[in-house]
Design a protein around this nucleic acid. Sequence first.
DNA 1: ACCACACCGTACCGTACGGTACGGACGTGT
DNA 2: ACACGTCCGTACCGTACGGTACGGTGTGGT
Lengths: 197, 197
Amino acid sequence: MTSETVQRRATGAGRLSTQDWTTRALQLLVDEGVGAVKVARLCRELGVTKGSFYWHFHDLEALKKAVADRWCAETRVALSEMASLGDLPPLERIRIMATQLVDDRSWSVERALRDWARSDEQVAATIADSEQHVFGLVQDALEQLGHDSRSARMRAGLLTYAGIGFAHGQQSLPKPTLEDIDDLVNFLSSEIEARRP
Amino acid sequence: MTSETVQRRATGAGRLSTQDWTTRALQLLVDEGVGAVKVARLCRELGVTKGSFYWHFHDLEALKKAVADRWCAETRVALSEMASLGDLPPLERIRIMATQLVDDRSWSVERALRDWARSDEQVAATIADSEQHVFGLVQDALEQLGHDSRSARMRAGLLTYAGIGFAHGQQSLPKPTLEDIDDLVNFLSSEIEARRP
DNA sequence: ACCACACCGTACCGTACGGTACGGACGTGT
DNA sequence: ACACGTCCGTACCGTACGGTACGGTGTGGT
């Protein structure tokens, strides 16, 4: 039933569902920031008027909350999929996460959602959870490689913060290649050989 | 003359200068994001009306440009001060940069300005310059420590991205202590001992 | 004393936006 | 065929905002 509705709206005809609004709102949010998600703008892009919007949602906050709820759910799914990599060797887990972060277009929604989090508690909480989750995965992998907790904590934090930074960086710095990622993973898993005075 | 004007405005009396507007605008920008810097809001907080604003600036864009110009200038000064660390030992240079990044409150303006950069070309360009500059400093320091260019590039990118990420991260991850930074710097300057199969 | 200018207040306009009230079209079950 | 609920269009309101026009006020120079 819902799939049919979405299908019809995708072709331009038919009625709108809640998901149609949230998807378009999320797209607007990613492309042009929080300030671009407005009622009139959404209605114009969906080919409807405000009468439709205020039938589906009580107000703008309700729409934003729906978007946040949906994104939080999808993020939880993605994180659980990451956790299901537990049977792979630790080095491979880290490599996959690093590669996925760089290669995927997920950093664009990451960036948009992260500045939305400045004005929305729920989004901020979900992002914080996401950070801690990734950090924990990397830390566990490093500890399984024989690193003590202090070393694993430092290196996992370094990689996690670097991932966040990569999402927010301008494109001024050279984008790391697959070889760079290999170097990086090998580097992160290496032992400290000697300290220089 | 200007100092007197600023002084008097700081105590509540007197006329306003251009700097009074830019400082308050920057403060608003940092605290509540780009959407909070409005004419009426600024006038209310400065105890003036719009007649004053539109005498100092032609429109809102002019005010934003003034803020951007001023911040860009201050950033250039900070970067040149960083470059004046050239005579210090390389490890110390990296440690100072890392410590300053974590300890200082500069990350709050960093974060605000970086999402402003999404809608402003000048701000985006300045941030990109800043990134490349920091990256270059770290890379040079690592090369002076004997690392080949490929290794230095990877490690400098890792640290730079981690710095950006630290500015944008929620406070969910543990804030690195001074000891953590020591570990981090030692780790970044270490040699790869052995690769695990 | 007077003038000129920097600085600001007052009043006003156009527009964009969030939100409301209400009616009409369309399908669906009986 | 009838009623009912879903979904949306139309018209309208209040407000907040960017911007303009113009008059007033204080201060420094001559």
